[in-house]
Simulated scan of single mutants.
Amino acid sequence: MIRVVLADDQAIVRAGIARILAPADGFEVVAECVDGTEVAAAVARSRPDVVVMDVRMPRRDGLAATREVRALPQPPPVLILTTFDEDEVLWSALEAGAAGFLLKDAGATDLIHAVRAVAGGAAWFDPAVSPRLLAAYRRSVVPDQRQRRRLEELTEREAEVLRWMARGATNAEIAAGLHVSDGTVKSHVGAVFGKLGVRDRAAAIVYAFDHGVVTPGQGPPAS
């Protein structure tokens, strides 16, 4: 079971999400929060695999709550689920440490896939916001030539791991595809973060797309 904490101030929304993320599909909602002030304590208490977080909540919004969760020891990944697709909200979510961003008009299948991916250590971006995500990234980074040189610092295996990450693969899937251990993959992922100057998996994936390491619609790397 994938253990989930839900944070949304609307009871009807929480009920709908909980109905989709049902035990029959491998999920268990272990806590529900009506405000961002409750999330960190709920995470510490229930130790979920993933947090599904709304943005607009009355006392503490989901962005502040995401930062609090990510500051915890061994924090779970956070999937932002919101009706607001403005650039500021999207970029702020990534800056706060969110591993995924999904709009509430997405279908149930997309929600299930997104939660599974984020819980498994991958990242997930709603296709509707991906172009603006890339545009925001381009506006915020150092000149492209300097960024490109960082890719050249990757070893062949590190570049391969980056390609797998960019296609949404978890560490376990990368390990299986490359026939190496999970520990080896974690070591390569850490090296990729350090050499690219990114903080987390989501930023590494954006980097890979923005610099042509992978392209939209491209299949998984050959093992």
Rank of each mutant, 00 (worst) to 15 (best):
F101I: 06
F101T: 05
F101D: 09
L102I: 03
L102D: 04
L103C: 02
K104E: 01
K104P: 05
K104V: 06
K104H: 04
K104L: 05
D105T: 03
G107I: 11
G107Q: 07
T109K: 13
L111F: 03
I112C: 08
I112Y: 07
I112K: 15
H113S: 13
H113W: 00
H113Q: 14
H113P: 05
A114R: 02
A114S: 04
A114L: 03
A114N: 02
V115Y: 00
V115H: 03
V115N: 04
R116I: 02
A117W: 00
A117L: 11
A117I: 01
A117E: 06
V118E: 01
V118K: 03
A119E: 10
G120M: 02
G121K: 08
G121V: 11
A122D: 07
A122R: 01
A123V: 12
W124T: 00
F125K: 10
P127E: 00
V129F: 04
P131K: 00
P131A: 06
P131Q: 04
R132G: 10
L133E: 09
L134N: 06
L134S: 11
A135T: 12
A135M: 08
A135E: 13
A136V: 10
A136H: 06
Y137C: 07
R138F: 11
R138P: 02
S140Q: 14
V141Q: 15
V141T: 14
V142K: 15
V142I: 12
P143V: 11
D144Q: 12
Q145I: 09
Q145G: 10
Q145D: 13
Q145N: 09
R146Y: 10
R146C: 07
Q147F: 00
R148Q: 11
R149V: 11
R150V: 01
R150C: 07
R150A: 10
R150P: 06
L151G: 05
L151P: 05
E152C: 00
E153L: 14
E153H: 05
L154M: 06
T155C: 05
T155W: 09
T155K: 11
E156A: 15
E156H: 08
E158K: 03
A159H: 12
A159T: 09
A159N: 06
E160L: 14
E160R: 13
V161A: 12
V161N: 06
V161H: 08
V161Y: 03
L162T: 01
R163L: 10
M165R: 09
M165H: 01
A166T: 12
R167T: 15
R167M: 01
R167P: 03
R167K: 07
A169F: 14
A169S: 13
A169E: 10
N171D: 14
A172C: 05
A172H: 10
A172D: 13
A172M: 11
